[in-house]
Nucleic acid binder design. Structure first.
Lengths: 222, 222
DNA sequence: CAGGCTTTGAACGTTTCCGTACATTTTGCC
DNA sequence: GGCAAAATGTACGGAAACGTTCAAAGCCTG
Protein backbone atom coordinates (compact mmCIF):
# COMPACT_ATOMS: atom_id res chain seq x y z
CA UNK A 1 0.00 0.00 0.00
CA UNK A 2 1.01 3.59 -0.56
CA UNK A 3 0.63 4.37 3.09
CA UNK A 4 2.94 1.65 4.26
CA UNK A 5 5.57 2.80 1.80
CA UNK A 6 5.28 6.37 2.89
CA UNK A 7 5.91 5.27 6.47
CA UNK A 8 8.77 3.08 5.48
CA UNK A 9 10.37 5.86 3.53
CA UNK A 10 10.48 8.15 6.57
CA UNK A 11 13.98 8.78 7.80
CA UNK A 12 14.17 9.12 11.55
CA UNK A 13 17.13 11.01 12.94
CA UNK A 14 18.20 9.56 16.30
CA UNK A 15 19.61 11.36 19.27
CA UNK A 16 22.79 9.93 20.69
CA UNK A 17 24.75 10.39 23.90
CA UNK A 18 21.91 9.65 26.31
CA UNK A 19 22.53 7.49 29.33
CA UNK A 20 20.29 4.65 30.26
CA UNK A 21 18.36 5.75 33.32
CA UNK A 22 14.91 4.20 33.77
CA UNK A 23 14.54 5.43 37.34
CA UNK A 24 15.53 8.93 36.37
CA UNK A 25 13.03 8.96 33.54
CA UNK A 26 10.27 7.69 35.81
CA UNK A 27 11.23 10.28 38.43
CA UNK A 28 11.15 13.06 35.92
CA UNK A 29 7.75 12.02 34.59
CA UNK A 30 6.33 11.60 38.09
CA UNK A 31 7.54 15.03 39.18
CA UNK A 32 6.01 16.79 36.21
CA UNK A 33 2.82 14.76 36.47
CA UNK A 34 2.43 15.53 40.16
CA UNK A 35 2.64 19.22 39.49
CA UNK A 36 0.20 19.06 36.59
CA UNK A 37 -2.36 16.85 38.32
CA UNK A 38 -2.15 19.03 41.41
CA UNK A 39 -2.59 22.17 39.36
CA UNK A 40 -5.39 21.03 37.07
CA UNK A 41 -6.91 17.86 38.41
CA UNK A 42 -7.12 14.45 36.82
CA UNK A 43 -9.35 15.42 33.92
CA UNK A 44 -7.90 18.91 33.60
CA UNK A 45 -4.29 17.79 33.19
CA UNK A 46 -3.22 16.94 29.65
CA UNK A 47 -0.95 14.07 28.79
CA UNK A 48 0.57 16.00 25.92
CA UNK A 49 1.38 18.89 28.19
CA UNK A 50 2.90 16.67 30.84
CA UNK A 51 5.01 15.11 28.12
CA UNK A 52 6.09 18.51 26.85
CA UNK A 53 7.29 19.48 30.34
CA UNK A 54 9.37 16.36 30.85
CA UNK A 55 12.82 15.91 29.44
CA UNK A 56 11.52 12.85 27.64
CA UNK A 57 8.52 12.19 25.41
CA UNK A 58 4.91 11.11 25.56
CA UNK A 59 6.05 7.79 24.25
CA UNK A 60 7.86 7.08 27.49
CA UNK A 61 4.90 7.98 29.66
CA UNK A 62 2.93 5.19 28.05
CA UNK A 63 5.96 2.97 28.05
CA UNK A 64 6.32 3.20 31.82
CA UNK A 65 2.84 3.92 33.11
CA UNK A 66 0.42 2.50 30.61
CA UNK A 67 -2.14 5.24 30.61
CA UNK A 68 -3.13 8.53 32.18
CA UNK A 69 -5.08 7.00 35.03
CA UNK A 70 -2.26 4.72 36.10
CA UNK A 71 0.13 7.62 35.96
CA UNK A 72 -2.20 9.51 38.28
CA UNK A 73 -2.37 6.59 40.68
CA UNK A 74 1.42 6.34 40.71
CA UNK A 75 1.64 10.03 41.57
CA UNK A 76 -0.93 9.63 44.32
CA UNK A 77 0.78 6.63 45.82
CA UNK A 78 4.08 8.43 45.93
CA UNK A 79 2.53 11.46 47.60
CA UNK A 80 1.07 9.33 50.36
CA UNK A 81 4.30 7.47 50.81
CA UNK A 82 6.12 10.77 51.24
CA UNK A 83 3.90 12.02 54.01
CA UNK A 84 4.13 8.70 55.74
CA UNK A 85 7.91 8.93 55.65
CA UNK A 86 7.68 12.38 57.13
CA UNK A 87 5.37 11.22 59.90
CA UNK A 88 7.60 8.33 60.80
CA UNK A 89 10.59 10.61 60.94
CA UNK A 90 9.31 12.76 63.78
CA UNK A 91 10.86 11.91 67.13
CA UNK A 92 8.35 12.82 69.79
CA UNK A 93 8.90 10.19 72.42
CA UNK A 94 11.61 12.07 74.27
CA UNK A 95 9.39 15.10 74.87
CA UNK A 96 6.65 15.67 77.45
CA UNK A 97 3.26 15.01 75.90
CA UNK A 98 2.18 18.63 75.58
CA UNK A 99 5.43 19.71 73.97
CA UNK A 100 5.34 16.70 71.71
CA UNK A 101 1.83 17.56 70.59
CA UNK A 102 2.83 21.15 69.92
CA UNK A 103 5.72 19.93 67.83
CA UNK A 104 3.54 17.46 65.95
CA UNK A 105 0.99 20.11 65.11
CA UNK A 106 3.63 22.60 64.06
CA UNK A 107 5.35 20.00 61.91
CA UNK A 108 2.06 19.08 60.31
CA UNK A 109 1.30 22.69 59.44
CA UNK A 110 4.77 23.05 58.04
CA UNK A 111 4.51 19.90 55.97
CA UNK A 112 1.26 20.97 54.37
CA UNK A 113 2.57 24.44 53.75
CA UNK A 114 5.72 23.08 52.16
CA UNK A 115 3.84 20.55 50.00
CA UNK A 116 0.86 22.26 48.43
CA UNK A 117 0.94 19.67 45.65
CA UNK A 118 0.14 16.97 48.16
CA UNK A 119 -2.75 18.98 49.52
CA UNK A 120 -4.15 19.59 46.05
CA UNK A 121 -3.80 15.96 45.08
CA UNK A 122 -5.80 14.96 48.12
CA UNK A 123 -8.46 17.49 47.12
CA UNK A 124 -8.56 16.07 43.63
CA UNK A 125 -8.84 12.58 45.00
CA UNK A 126 -11.71 13.63 47.25
CA UNK A 127 -13.52 15.11 44.28
CA UNK A 128 -13.23 11.67 42.73
CA UNK A 129 -14.58 10.10 45.90
CA UNK A 130 -11.23 8.49 46.66
CA UNK A 131 -11.93 5.79 44.12
CA UNK A 132 -8.26 5.49 43.13
CA UNK A 133 -7.15 5.33 46.72
CA UNK A 134 -9.67 2.60 47.31
CA UNK A 135 -8.27 0.45 44.53
CA UNK A 136 -4.64 1.01 45.39
CA UNK A 137 -3.26 -1.94 47.31
CA UNK A 138 -0.11 0.04 48.01
CA UNK A 139 -1.97 2.70 49.94
CA UNK A 140 -4.32 0.33 51.64
CA UNK A 141 -1.29 -1.33 53.20
CA UNK A 142 0.22 2.00 54.09
CA UNK A 143 -1.88 2.30 57.21
CA UNK A 144 -1.13 5.84 58.27
CA UNK A 145 0.79 5.86 61.48
CA UNK A 146 -0.31 9.36 62.35
CA UNK A 147 -3.46 8.36 64.15
CA UNK A 148 -1.67 5.75 66.23
CA UNK A 149 0.92 8.33 67.13
CA UNK A 150 -1.72 10.76 68.32
CA UNK A 151 -3.36 8.00 70.31
CA UNK A 152 -0.12 7.23 72.12
CA UNK A 153 0.64 10.85 72.71
CA UNK A 154 -2.78 11.51 74.11
CA UNK A 155 -2.59 8.52 76.42
CA UNK A 156 0.73 9.73 77.71
CA UNK A 157 -0.62 13.23 78.29
CA UNK A 158 -3.65 12.00 80.18
CA UNK A 159 -1.48 9.78 82.35
CA UNK A 160 0.84 12.65 83.22
CA UNK A 161 -2.07 14.98 83.84
CA UNK A 162 -1.31 17.58 81.18
CA UNK A 163 -4.28 16.52 79.02
CA UNK A 164 -7.85 16.10 80.13
CA UNK A 165 -9.38 12.65 79.87
CA UNK A 166 -12.42 11.62 77.89
CA UNK A 167 -11.43 12.76 74.42
CA UNK A 168 -11.43 10.63 71.33
CA UNK A 169 -7.93 10.66 69.81
CA UNK A 170 -9.62 10.62 66.43
CA UNK A 171 -11.05 14.06 67.16
CA UNK A 172 -7.63 15.38 68.03
CA UNK A 173 -6.23 13.95 64.84
CA UNK A 174 -9.05 15.26 62.68
CA UNK A 175 -8.79 18.69 64.22
CA UNK A 176 -5.11 19.05 63.64
CA UNK A 177 -5.38 17.63 60.13
CA UNK A 178 -8.27 19.91 59.26
CA UNK A 179 -6.50 23.04 60.44
CA UNK A 180 -3.24 22.20 58.71
CA UNK A 181 -4.98 21.13 55.52
CA UNK A 182 -7.57 23.87 55.12
CA UNK A 183 -4.89 26.44 55.60
CA UNK A 184 -3.40 25.45 52.27
CA UNK A 185 -6.33 23.91 50.43
CA UNK A 186 -8.61 26.94 50.63
CA UNK A 187 -6.01 29.62 50.23
CA UNK A 188 -7.37 30.81 46.92
CA UNK A 189 -10.98 31.27 47.98
CA UNK A 190 -9.93 32.79 51.30
CA UNK A 191 -7.89 35.29 49.37
CA UNK A 192 -10.81 36.23 47.14
CA UNK A 193 -13.57 36.25 49.71
CA UNK A 194 -11.79 37.61 52.77
CA UNK A 195 -9.09 39.54 50.93
CA UNK A 196 -6.52 37.92 53.15
CA UNK A 197 -3.42 36.25 51.75
CA UNK A 198 -2.37 33.20 53.74
CA UNK A 199 0.69 32.78 51.56
CA UNK A 200 2.18 35.92 53.04
CA UNK A 201 4.91 35.15 55.56
CA UNK A 202 3.50 37.11 58.49
CA UNK A 203 -0.01 35.73 58.07
CA UNK A 204 1.43 32.26 57.72
CA UNK A 205 3.37 32.40 60.96
CA UNK A 206 0.52 33.92 62.91
CA UNK A 207 -1.85 31.27 61.69
CA UNK A 208 0.63 28.54 62.53
CA UNK A 209 0.81 29.75 66.13
CA UNK A 210 -2.96 30.03 66.36
CA UNK A 211 -3.41 26.47 65.14
CA UNK A 212 -0.98 25.07 67.70
CA UNK A 213 -2.75 27.08 70.36
CA UNK A 214 -6.13 25.79 69.35
CA UNK A 215 -5.16 22.13 69.47
CA UNK A 216 -3.51 22.58 72.84
CA UNK A 217 -6.57 24.40 74.16
CA UNK A 218 -8.65 21.46 73.04
CA UNK A 219 -6.75 18.93 75.16
CA UNK A 220 -5.85 21.11 78.14
CA UNK A 221 -7.56 20.22 81.44
CA UNK A 222 -10.30 22.64 82.48
CA UNK B 1 -26.51 22.02 -2.54
CA UNK B 2 -27.45 18.50 -1.63
CA UNK B 3 -26.57 19.09 1.97
CA UNK B 4 -28.81 22.09 2.33
CA UNK B 5 -31.68 20.17 0.81
CA UNK B 6 -31.15 17.25 3.10
CA UNK B 7 -31.37 19.58 6.06
CA UNK B 8 -34.41 21.31 4.69
CA UNK B 9 -36.09 18.00 4.10
CA UNK B 10 -35.69 16.96 7.70
CA UNK B 11 -38.97 16.84 9.52
CA UNK B 12 -38.65 17.91 13.11
CA UNK B 13 -41.27 16.51 15.46
CA UNK B 14 -42.15 19.08 18.13
CA UNK B 15 -43.16 18.49 21.64
CA UNK B 16 -46.34 20.15 22.71
CA UNK B 17 -48.01 20.84 26.01
CA UNK B 18 -45.10 22.57 27.69
CA UNK B 19 -45.62 25.74 29.68
CA UNK B 20 -43.48 28.79 29.22
CA UNK B 21 -41.18 28.93 32.23
CA UNK B 22 -37.77 30.54 31.70
CA UNK B 23 -36.96 30.65 35.40
CA UNK B 24 -37.93 27.05 35.86
CA UNK B 25 -35.75 25.99 32.96
CA UNK B 26 -32.81 27.97 34.31
CA UNK B 27 -33.42 26.51 37.75
CA UNK B 28 -33.51 23.00 36.40
CA UNK B 29 -30.29 23.48 34.44
CA UNK B 30 -28.55 25.10 37.40
CA UNK B 31 -29.54 22.30 39.75
CA UNK B 32 -28.27 19.60 37.46
CA UNK B 33 -25.13 21.55 36.65
CA UNK B 34 -24.35 22.13 40.30
CA UNK B 35 -24.56 18.46 41.02
CA UNK B 36 -22.42 17.54 38.03
CA UNK B 37 -19.75 20.18 38.59
CA UNK B 38 -19.63 19.26 42.26
CA UNK B 39 -19.30 15.60 41.41
CA UNK B 40 -16.77 15.79 38.61
CA UNK B 41 -15.20 19.21 38.59
CA UNK B 42 -15.20 21.83 35.87
CA UNK B 43 -13.25 19.86 33.31
CA UNK B 44 -14.64 16.51 34.39
CA UNK B 45 -18.29 17.46 33.96
CA UNK B 46 -19.72 17.01 30.47
CA UNK B 47 -22.13 19.43 28.89
CA UNK B 48 -23.86 16.61 27.05
CA UNK B 49 -24.37 14.73 30.27
CA UNK B 50 -25.69 17.76 32.10
CA UNK B 51 -28.10 18.26 29.24
CA UNK B 52 -29.21 14.66 29.37
CA UNK B 53 -30.03 15.00 33.06
CA UNK B 54 -32.14 18.10 32.66
CA UNK B 55 -35.72 18.03 31.55
CA UNK B 56 -34.68 20.25 28.68
CA UNK B 57 -31.92 20.05 26.08
CA UNK B 58 -28.34 21.10 25.46
CA UNK B 59 -29.72 23.69 23.16
CA UNK B 60 -31.22 25.53 26.12
CA UNK B 61 -28.05 25.47 28.15
CA UNK B 62 -26.33 27.49 25.49
CA UNK B 63 -29.45 29.55 25.02
CA UNK B 64 -29.40 30.68 28.63
CA UNK B 65 -25.79 30.47 29.74
CA UNK B 66 -23.68 30.88 26.64
CA UNK B 67 -21.02 28.30 27.35
CA UNK B 68 -19.78 25.77 29.88
CA UNK B 69 -17.62 28.19 31.77
CA UNK B 70 -20.36 30.74 32.24
CA UNK B 71 -22.69 27.99 33.39
CA UNK B 72 -20.10 27.02 35.97
CA UNK B 73 -19.75 30.61 37.15
CA UNK B 74 -23.52 30.90 37.47
CA UNK B 75 -23.57 27.76 39.60
CA UNK B 76 -20.75 29.08 41.75
CA UNK B 77 -22.38 32.45 42.25
CA UNK B 78 -25.60 30.87 43.31
CA UNK B 79 -23.84 28.61 45.79
CA UNK B 80 -22.15 31.56 47.44
CA UNK B 81 -25.37 33.51 47.51
CA UNK B 82 -27.06 30.63 49.26
CA UNK B 83 -24.55 30.40 52.06
CA UNK B 84 -24.68 34.13 52.49
CA UNK B 85 -28.44 33.97 52.86
CA UNK B 86 -28.00 31.26 55.45
CA UNK B 87 -25.46 33.29 57.38
CA UNK B 88 -27.64 36.35 57.40
CA UNK B 89 -30.58 34.34 58.64
CA UNK B 90 -28.98 33.36 61.91
CA UNK B 91 -30.21 35.39 64.86
CA UNK B 92 -27.43 35.45 67.40
CA UNK B 93 -27.77 38.87 68.94
CA UNK B 94 -30.24 37.82 71.60
CA UNK B 95 -27.91 35.18 73.03
CA UNK B 96 -24.93 35.53 75.35
CA UNK B 97 -21.72 35.54 73.35
CA UNK B 98 -20.60 32.02 74.23
CA UNK B 99 -23.98 30.48 73.47
CA UNK B 100 -24.18 32.48 70.28
CA UNK B 101 -20.78 31.20 69.19
CA UNK B 102 -21.75 27.64 69.96
CA UNK B 103 -24.87 28.06 67.87
CA UNK B 104 -22.93 29.66 65.04
CA UNK B 105 -20.41 26.83 64.94
CA UNK B 106 -23.11 24.18 65.12
CA UNK B 107 -25.08 25.84 62.36
CA UNK B 108 -21.98 26.07 60.22
CA UNK B 109 -21.23 22.39 60.65
CA UNK B 110 -24.83 21.59 59.81
CA UNK B 111 -24.83 23.78 56.73
CA UNK B 112 -21.71 22.16 55.32
CA UNK B 113 -23.02 18.71 56.12
CA UNK B 114 -26.34 19.46 54.45
CA UNK B 115 -24.72 21.01 51.37
CA UNK B 116 -21.87 18.79 50.23
CA UNK B 117 -22.26 20.21 46.73
CA UNK B 118 -21.30 23.62 48.02
CA UNK B 119 -18.24 22.19 49.72
CA UNK B 120 -17.17 20.36 46.59
CA UNK B 121 -17.68 23.40 44.40
CA UNK B 122 -15.42 25.40 46.67
CA UNK B 123 -12.83 22.62 46.41
CA UNK B 124 -13.09 22.71 42.64
CA UNK B 125 -12.74 26.46 42.63
CA UNK B 126 -9.65 26.23 44.82
CA UNK B 127 -8.11 23.76 42.41
CA UNK B 128 -8.61 26.42 39.76
CA UNK B 129 -6.98 29.00 42.00
CA UNK B 130 -10.28 30.82 42.48
CA UNK B 131 -9.91 32.43 39.08
CA UNK B 132 -13.64 32.42 38.43
CA UNK B 133 -14.41 33.88 41.82
CA UNK B 134 -11.90 36.60 41.12
CA UNK B 135 -13.62 37.63 37.92
CA UNK B 136 -17.14 37.48 39.27
CA UNK B 137 -18.37 40.93 40.14
CA UNK B 138 -21.38 39.39 41.83
CA UNK B 139 -19.29 37.55 44.37
CA UNK B 140 -16.83 40.34 44.86
CA UNK B 141 -19.71 42.51 46.02
CA UNK B 142 -21.07 39.74 48.18
CA UNK B 143 -18.66 40.50 50.95
CA UNK B 144 -19.24 37.60 53.28
CA UNK B 145 -20.85 38.80 56.44
CA UNK B 146 -19.61 35.83 58.43
CA UNK B 147 -16.31 37.36 59.41
CA UNK B 148 -17.94 40.58 60.59
CA UNK B 149 -20.38 38.53 62.58
CA UNK B 150 -17.58 36.66 64.33
CA UNK B 151 -15.82 39.91 64.99
CA UNK B 152 -18.88 41.36 66.72
CA UNK B 153 -19.50 38.22 68.64
CA UNK B 154 -15.95 38.03 69.83
CA UNK B 155 -15.97 41.66 70.92
CA UNK B 156 -19.12 41.04 72.87
CA UNK B 157 -17.65 37.98 74.53
CA UNK B 158 -14.48 39.74 75.55
CA UNK B 159 -16.48 42.64 76.99
CA UNK B 160 -18.63 40.32 79.04
CA UNK B 161 -15.64 38.33 80.18
CA UNK B 162 -16.60 34.95 78.72
CA UNK B 163 -13.87 35.12 76.04
CA UNK B 164 -10.22 35.83 76.57
CA UNK B 165 -8.80 38.94 74.95
CA UNK B 166 -5.98 39.11 72.43
CA UNK B 167 -7.30 36.82 69.72
CA UNK B 168 -7.64 37.71 66.10
CA UNK B 169 -11.27 37.17 65.05
CA UNK B 170 -9.93 35.96 61.72
CA UNK B 171 -8.36 33.00 63.50
CA UNK B 172 -11.65 32.12 65.10
CA UNK B 173 -13.39 32.35 61.78
CA UNK B 174 -10.76 30.30 59.95
CA UNK B 175 -10.81 27.65 62.66
CA UNK B 176 -14.53 27.17 62.60
CA UNK B 177 -14.61 27.23 58.82
CA UNK B 178 -11.79 24.74 58.55
CA UNK B 179 -13.37 22.28 60.94
CA UNK B 180 -16.80 22.49 59.36
CA UNK B 181 -15.40 22.32 55.83
CA UNK B 182 -12.82 19.56 56.19
CA UNK B 183 -15.38 17.39 57.83
CA UNK B 184 -17.20 17.15 54.52
CA UNK B 185 -14.50 17.86 51.96
CA UNK B 186 -12.18 15.07 53.01
CA UNK B 187 -14.73 12.47 53.86
CA UNK B 188 -13.69 10.15 51.08
CA UNK B 189 -9.98 10.04 51.87
CA UNK B 190 -10.67 9.83 55.60
CA UNK B 191 -12.85 6.83 54.92
CA UNK B 192 -10.15 5.10 52.89
CA UNK B 193 -7.16 5.97 55.01
CA UNK B 194 -8.60 5.82 58.51
CA UNK B 195 -11.43 3.41 57.77
CA UNK B 196 -13.79 5.76 59.49
CA UNK B 197 -17.04 6.88 57.90
CA UNK B 198 -17.94 10.46 58.77
CA UNK B 199 -21.22 10.14 56.89
CA UNK B 200 -22.50 7.76 59.52
CA UNK B 201 -24.97 9.45 61.86
CA UNK B 202 -23.27 8.64 65.15
CA UNK B 203 -19.84 9.70 63.92
CA UNK B 204 -21.36 12.82 62.49
CA UNK B 205 -22.97 13.91 65.74
CA UNK B 206 -19.92 13.13 67.82
CA UNK B 207 -17.73 15.13 65.50
CA UNK B 208 -20.16 18.04 65.55
CA UNK B 209 -19.97 18.21 69.34
CA UNK B 210 -16.19 17.96 69.30
CA UNK B 211 -15.93 20.83 66.84
CA UNK B 212 -18.13 23.09 68.94
CA UNK B 213 -16.07 22.16 71.97
CA UNK B 214 -12.82 22.94 70.23
CA UNK B 215 -13.85 26.41 69.12
CA UNK B 216 -15.16 27.24 72.56
CA UNK B 217 -11.95 25.95 74.14
CA UNK B 218 -10.05 28.25 71.84
CA UNK B 219 -11.75 31.40 73.08
CA UNK B 220 -12.32 30.47 76.71
CA UNK B 221 -10.31 32.46 79.29
CA UNK B 222 -7.45 30.52 80.86
C1' DC C 1 29.59 -9.08 21.51
C1' DA C 2 24.93 -10.22 21.60
C1' DG C 3 20.56 -9.76 23.08
C1' DG C 4 17.28 -7.51 25.48
C1' DC C 5 15.94 -3.48 27.66
C1' DT C 6 15.70 1.40 26.96
C1' DT C 7 14.98 5.25 24.11
C1' DT C 8 13.82 7.92 20.13
C1' DG C 9 10.22 10.79 17.43
C1' DA C 10 6.72 11.96 14.71
C1' DA C 11 2.62 11.02 12.62
C1' DC C 12 -1.83 9.02 12.80
C1' DG C 13 -6.40 6.97 14.28
C1' DT C 14 -10.20 7.49 16.98
C1' DT C 15 -13.03 9.09 20.29
C1' DT C 16 -14.82 12.55 22.92
C1' DC C 17 -16.68 16.77 23.55
C1' DC C 18 -17.72 21.71 23.05
C1' DG C 19 -20.34 24.73 20.65
C1' DT C 20 -23.39 25.98 16.53
C1' DA C 21 -26.37 25.64 12.43
C1' DC C 22 -30.59 24.87 10.95
C1' DA C 23 -35.83 25.30 10.57
C1' DT C 24 -39.87 25.59 13.12
C1' DT C 25 -43.39 25.53 16.62
C1' DT C 26 -45.54 26.79 20.86
C1' DT C 27 -46.92 29.88 24.13
C1' DG C 28 -48.67 33.96 26.29
C1' DC C 29 -49.68 38.75 26.11
C1' DC C 30 -51.92 42.79 24.11
C1' DG D 1 -55.11 37.65 15.62
C1' DG D 2 -50.58 39.17 15.63
C1' DC D 3 -46.11 39.09 17.47
C1' DA D 4 -42.08 38.44 20.17
C1' DA D 5 -40.02 35.57 23.24
C1' DA D 6 -39.36 30.84 24.61
C1' DA D 7 -38.57 26.39 23.39
C1' DT D 8 -37.37 22.37 20.38
C1' DG D 9 -34.07 18.59 18.42
C1' DT D 10 -30.72 16.80 15.81
C1' DA D 11 -26.93 16.63 13.28
C1' DC D 12 -22.59 18.33 12.40
C1' DG D 13 -18.11 21.15 12.36
C1' DG D 14 -13.91 21.26 14.32
C1' DA D 15 -10.70 21.03 17.81
C1' DA D 16 -8.77 18.59 21.57
C1' DA D 17 -6.84 14.93 23.61
C1' DC D 18 -5.86 10.07 24.51
C1' DG D 19 -3.41 6.40 23.15
C1' DT D 20 -0.95 3.68 19.23
C1' DT D 21 1.80 2.59 15.48
C1' DC D 22 5.40 2.59 12.82
C1' DA D 23 10.71 1.69 12.35
C1' DA D 24 15.08 1.80 14.20
C1' DA D 25 18.90 2.39 17.11
C1' DG D 26 21.72 3.27 21.37
C1' DC D 27 23.14 1.44 25.78
C1' DC D 28 24.64 -1.87 29.08
C1' DT D 29 25.35 -6.36 31.24
C1' DG D 30 26.63 -10.95 31.19
Amino acid sequence: MAEAQRRKARRVPRRTGWTRDPDGVRRNILDVARSEFARKGLSGARVDEIAALTSTSKRMIYYYFGDKQRLYVAVLEEAYQSIRTFETGLSLDALPADEALARLVGASVDYHTAHPDFVRLVMVENIHDAQHLRRSAKIHDLNLTALARVRDLYGRGVASGVFRAGLDPLDIFLTLSALAFYNVSNRATIREVLHHDMAEAAACMARRAAIIDTVLAMVRPR
